[in-house]
Design a protein around this nucleic acid. Structure first.
Lengths: 197, 197
DNA sequence: ACCTGAACACCGTTCAAGT
DNA sequence: ACCTGAACACCGTTCAAGT
């Protein structure tokens, strides 16, 4: 027994996350995870159904962090538009600081398919974001499209920019001005469409 | 020797593409590719540096198809706005018909990093799309942002929608209305921002 | 020039045991 | 309840040969 309350399961997830950050998904081998957590290479099977379930545990933990951060921003005393920017910027920073983890959360078929707790955590983040979008609409900053649809569209656009950037599809010759500037431009173009009502 | 002009290299790429469509990237093992092409499991090494180079060959071929299709749409007698829709719709159809291949082209780090001919093919597609965006601006259908920047933003948004859909992040509870409808909505919201000048 | 078979160093996963 | 070591069926890649 090491630090109080730190279970073997916690150490397995932590070791897997460290390997993921350092070397991408393929670096997360059960043998390396076991070694990182100080157990044998198949001890993980006593805590997770398989490798995908272990990866999903990382994703679930991080989606929860997203949900917390988004909820805090939503409840802050900023203006609606500032909240929108804060959430988008938080996501961009996370993607830049932990590119492999971002990819695991938002660009991984097998992980999203794990369902359950993970879906709940992801939905909670989305709801906080959608609520901020609704605030923006009430403030006349965003047009009156159904707020969930608009929120999904904005977040998908942000993801597309981050994905293209990460995959090297944003050649300077393509007029790419950076993710943050691009999403600002998009919000700006959309904002003007309603003449602020 | 089989059909005239069909080289071993062609058969290797075709076999790899078939495996990719059928079972995703991990199904493309060099052993299965070799068997599919009627050669040994390491004959591919005489034609491609490694597995990633083989996958990149599929991507290059498909990017060329994209470039051809986009160029043909650009040169057609449609209106600017119809051309824009046709290109977006072509991409959506391709992504729906060949999800694994779409992922290989637009959501794969290792492949994009192969550079060279692939980058050229991708750039050619982009240029055709950007030219159509420019036509839309001249027609007052899209706002006067630098056309490459706007084209990149639109295509990235489309990719984000397709990626979220493929990864199951578009729960109905999130107000998702479909990729085609979502990108139409986005174009519509952006179009109105300039009051058609 | 193009291909093959054997071999190496890895994988995820399963299983029979151990405490 | 939790963990281990051996084993199985795979991988990508390399190498020494063969035609």
């Amino acid at each position: 027994m090491r630090a109080a309350g730190v279970t073997t399961e916690d150490r397995l997830v932590a070791a897997a996350a460290a390997l993921l950050d350092a070397g991408g998904e393929k670096a997360v081998t059960l043998r390396a995870v076991g070694q990182g957590a100080g157990v044998s290479h198949n001890a993980p099977y006593k805590h997770f159904r398989n490798r995908d379930a272990l990866l999903a545990a990382i994703a679930t933990a991080d989606f929860t962090r997203f949900g917390d951060a988004f909820a805090e921003i939503r409840g802050s005393s900023r203006t609606a538009k500032e909240k929108l920017r804060a959430i988008l910027e938080f996501t961009i920073e996370y993607a830049h600081d932990h590119p492999m983890r971002y990819q695991l959360l938002f660009a991984n078929r097998a992980i999203a398919a794990q369902g359950g707790v993970l879906q709940e955590a992801a939905m909670r983040s989305f709801e906080a974001f959608a609520a901020v979008v609704e605030e923006c609409q009430a403030a006349g900053v965003l047009p009156g499209t159904p707020h969930r649809t608009l929120a999904g569209l904005l977040f998908a656009s942000l993801h597309g920019l981050l994905a293209f950037e990460a995959n090297g599809l944003t050649h300077p010759r393509k007029g790419f001005i950076g993710v943050s500037e691009s999403i600002d431009l998009l919000v700006d173009l959309i904002s003007r469409s309603d003449d602020r009502r």
